[in-house]
Structures are given as structure tokens and as C-alpha cells.
């Protein structure tokens, strides 16, 4: 792929993620979804940049704020929406909801609603890849808030010790729920990784191309058996912690400044300057259409029935 093709692909992925999140928000506000939604608006460059560097056979684990990662990794938006609706066509047959997308076909091991819970399965998949010699890489997405959980330290130590084919991708969106990172984290997340001898890098998380380049290098290192890398992608959470969060804890001016660094607009400007301007509109519209159609089809599905409750608890 040429650099331009890669950038256009990143643009497309980001547009799909944004459309997914906006559609989800719209549905929730319209009272059509139960439960909570944690949106990744403004963070699309991280999901697109990292997931586009992976093959379908590579694995990711993600978090409560994971729709973007799943869309970018090849999850089917229709089945994702079906899950949000609580419909039987959802990835969990409509039982588990927005924070629980898992799909072997696209390499999504799972999202988790437990902060700091995403490292375990990822490190296990990387271990499996190493033992079985499959060449697959595993990426654990996590928020900066999760770096205060002990699980990160355990996983960094072990992944580095065993040179596991793994990438730790921290999405530093400045907030953990209602609290700014400076009130939670002493020192830097990269320094934690460095202490365990991981290669660690800070990246402009709103620059999809920069994220992609860093991810390419980290994935190549992992595949070559050179061990794990930690990428700290600096970005900003545009929406509240959840849809409906009153956001009394932050200044609207700060939010406006955060939104000024719009990853889609940034890449769009760059592509336009390179003469690709007229394709952008078309890509955006196709993305919006794809997502809207997926949501529509999902809306027409069957609500999960109670006889699904006991299905899939055990394998036989």
C-alpha cells in the first residue's frame, strides 16, 4: 500500500468509528438502548492506527471504551449494534452488552468492563502465539487510568521477561471517569514500561499516521521475537465518561481545545493538501451509510430470549 492508500484507509476507519459512536449515542439518547455507552469520540486515530497495522489473525483485547478498536479490527458493526440492542444476533447473543464484544474471526479476544482486566487475555494470546509459533501478535488496549492497577506491572514484567509478541497500547485520554490524570498517576506510564525493559514511546494519539508508524514498528519488533513495546498515545476524551455524564468536573474551554485536535480533520487536511480532497467526502458518506445501515438492520433483529440465558455457559 502506498502512503496515500494507507492514509485513506486510516481516514475511512476513523470515519466508521466516529459514525458508530455517534449512532450509538443517538440511539441511547432516543431511549432505544439499555445500559451505558462509553464513547471513544476524539480517540479514533489510536484505534485506526494500531488495528490497521494488524492482520485478522492477530489479537486484541479492549476495554469498556472499545467500540472503536472492534470496528477497526474488523468486527461487524451490525453484530456490534445487535449486541448494544440486546438482540440475539449480537456477539454475545445480546446478553452482555456494549462493553463485551468478542469475535475469534476478527481476532477480538474480548472487551472487558474491568479496568486493568485487558492485559490477561492479551498476554495469554501472545504466550500462545509464542508456544505454537503462529507468528501472531497481541495488542492490549487500556486507558491511562488502568496503569494504576497492579495488573499492568505484572503483565509488563512477564511480557518483557519472556519476550512475548505483544504491544501494550495506552490511550491516554486525560480522564479516568471524572478525574484528570494528574490527580491519579505519579510519574509516567512510559517510565513504568522502561523500568521493566520495554521499548516505550509517546505518540501524538490524534495523528493516525504517527500512530500507524509506531504500531508498525512495534508489531514488527513483536513478530521478530524482539519482545513487547508500550505505546502511549496522547489524546483527549471528547465526550463524558458515559453518555449522559453531566461533566461538571471539567471546563468547557478545555473540552473545546481538546476537540480542536480532531484526528479526522487533521488527517483530512493532510490528505486534501496532497490532492485527495475530493475523495474524502465520498469516504465519509460511505462510512456513515455503512454504519447507519448496520444499525438499521440490527434494530430489526430479535431480542434475546430468556432461553438463551443458559446457553454457552459451558462448552460440552
Amino acid at each position: 500500500m502506498s502512503n496515500t492508500d494507507t492514509a485513506l484507509e486510516l481516514y475511512r476507519l476513523m470515519c466508521e468509528i466516529r459514525a458508530f459512536e455517534e449512532e450509538g449515542e443517538r440511539l441511547l439518547r432516543a431511549g432505544r438502548l439499555a445500559g451505558n455507552l462509553h464513547l471513544s469520540l476524539g480517540q479514533e486515530a489510536v484505534a485506526a492506527g494500531v488495528c490497521s497495522a494488524l492482520a485478522a489473525t492477530d489479537h486484541i483485547t479492549t476495554t469498556h471504551r472499545g467500540h472503536g478498536h472492534c470496528v477497526a479490527k474488523g468486527g461487524d458493526p451490525e453484530r456490534m449494534f445487535a449486541e448494544l440492542f440486546g438482540h440475539a444476533d449480537g456477539y454475545s447473543k445480546g446478553r452482555a452488552g456494549s462493553m463485551h464484544i468478542a469475535d475469534p474471526d476478527s481476532g477480538i479476544l474480548g472487551a472487558t468492563a474491568i479496568v486493568g482486566g485487558s492485559f490477561g487475555m492479551a498476554i495469554g494470546a501472545a504466550f500462545g502465539a509464542q508456544v505454537l509459533g503462529t507468528g501472531a501478535v497481541a495488542v492490549a488496549f487500556f486507558g491511562e487510568g488502568a496503569s494504576a492497577e497492579g495488573t499492568l506491572h505484572e503483565a509488563l514484567n512477564l511480557a518483557a521477561l519472556w519476550k512475548l509478541p505483544m504491544v501494550f497500547c495506552c490511550e491516554n485520554n486525560q480522564y479516568a471517569e471524572m478525574t484528570h490524570v494528574r490527580e491519579h498517576i505519579s510519574g509516567s506510564i512510559r517510565a513504568i514500561a522502561a523500568a521493566h525493559d520495554l521499548a516505550a514511546e509517546e505518540i501524538d494519539g490524534n495523528d493516525a499516521v504517527a500512530v500507524r508508524e509506531a504500531a508498525d514498528a512495534a508489531v514488527a519488533r513483536a513478530r521478530a521475537g524482539e519482545g513487547p513495546t508500550l505505546l502511549e498515545c496522547m489524546t483527549y476524551r471528547w465526550s463524558g465518561h458515559y453518555v449522559g455524564d453531566p461533566e461538571s468536573y471539567r471546563d468547557p474551554e478545555e473540552v473545546a481545545a481538546g476537540k480542536a485536535a480532531d484526528p479526522i480533520a487533521l488527517l483530512g487536511e493532510r490528505l486534501a493538501a496532497g490532492g485527495e480532497g475530493e475523495r474524502l467526502e465520498e469516504i465519509r458518506e460511505a462510512a456513515n451509510r455503512r454504519i447507519a445501515e448496520a444499525a438499521d438492520r440490527a434494530a430489526g433483529g430479535q431480542p434475546a430470549s430468556p432461553d438463551l440465558l443458559l446457553a454457552d455457559v459451558y462448552a460440552s
Binding site: L109, F119, M121, A122, I123, G128, E154
Partner: peptide, 18 residues
């Protein structure tokens, strides 16, 4: 290492991929 949480994670993820 002495990392019980991650040991179960290793077992879980490893067992999910073969």
C-alpha cells in the same frame, strides 16, 4: 514470576488461541 492474576490471564488467553 509471582503474578497470580497474570498467570490466570496467561492461561485464559493461551487457552483461547489453541
Amino acid at each position: 514470576p509471582i503474578s497470580e492474576s497474570t498467570l490466570i490471564g496467561l492461561a485464559t488467553g493461551g487457552s483461547m488461541v489453541g
